[in-house]
């Protein structure tokens, strides 16, 4: 899926330059916890998040994220946008909720690369085991 399609699907605005709209992503990951992004995201992914601080850009840089989408109408400050431009990471912003944004992309065929995290740290909570 290329960035131009994603922009349309999410009715999003581009916060960085528009030159990268032909770029493609293969999968998606969504989280507000940057620790989770660093642990579980995969390459050639986009990141959907409600967090707009400068650490999001740093995290995306380290995890080699191809595109960041801010949801819920949130906008990062200029310093954050400038760092993204410097690191060549495109930023989109949409008024959609995180659920709606994920749902629309999923509907159009985008998936996450890993479906089941076998080593869930909280697995025992889920099964109710004591």
């Amino acid at each position: 899926m290329n960035l131009g399609e994603i922009l349309n699907i999410l009715d999003a605005d581009i916060l960085t330059c528009a030159s990268s709209l032909q770029k493609t992503v293969e999968s998606a990951y969504c989280a507000d916890l940057m620790s989770d992004v660093l642990s579980f995201s995969t390459t050639k992914s986009l990141l959907i998040t409600g967090l707009t601080n400068v650490q999001v850009i740093r995290t995306a840089e380290m995890a080699a994220i191809e595109l960041i989408i801010f949801v819920q109408g949130k906008r990062p400050d200029l310093r954050t946008i400038n760092l993204a431009i410097e690191k060549n990471i495109p930023l989109f912003a949409t008024g959609l909720s995180m659920f709606e944004a994920c749902g629309r992309l999923y509907e159009r065929g985008l998936r996450s690369q890993v479906h089941i995290y076998s080593q869930s740290p909280f697995g025992s909570c889920r099964t109710g085991a004591s």
Binding site: D32, L33, M34, S35, D36, V37, L38, S39, L51, N53, Q55, V56, T59, P121
Partner: peptide, 9 residues
Amino acid sequence: EMGFGSGMG
């Protein structure tokens, strides 16, 4: 609140 400190470091 900054997105860190979830014990995954």
